[in-house]
């Protein structure tokens, strides 16, 4: 019985450790995405998209604000595709095709998606 409990504890520990590793990885990805969002030479999303993050001051308004992302993009991959090339859905858009023109790498696009999907 005592052995069982110990095993259970060990298992619980493993699960928790696993979950927290995932959480740390997520947080890292989101932090990377945020840095790209703000960096003028990288994503520079802040130039056009307002976002409810205290570090994102004086955002531009050329594009829609980053709000209700999960409602607007129930499939996260569709959000990814929108960043990759916004001209597919709107041929006149001012938004640069971050993927098609390799402005950001694929990993960088994933990071931006991870960051803005929370809003």
């Amino acid at each position: 019985m005592r052995k069982n409990i110990r095993i259970k504890h060990a298992l619980l520990g493993l699960i928790l450790a696993g979950a927290s590793t995932v959480a740390v990885a997520d947080a890292d990805l989101e932090a990377k995405g945020k840095a790209l969002y703000l960096n003028k030479k990288k994503g520079n999303c802040i130039a056009c998209h307002m976002i409810n993050d205290p570090d994102a001051k004086l955002a531009g308004l050329q594009g829609p604000p980053i709000v209700a992302m999960q409602a607007r993009f129930p499939d996260k991959k569709q959000l990814r595709a929108q960043i990759w090339d916004a001209t597919v859905k709107n041929p006149k858009t001012i938004m640069p095709p971050f993927g098609r023109h390799w402005i950001l790498s694929e990993d960088e696009i994933d990071a931006v998606v991870a960051y803005i999907y929370k809003f």
């Binding site: 130039a47 004086l58 531009g60 050329q62």
Partner: peptide, 10 residues
């Protein structure tokens, strides 16, 4: 034309 007078940052 399209984006006239809409802020890009400030």
């Amino acid at each position: 034309v399209q984006g006239v007078n809409i802020p890009i940052r400030a």
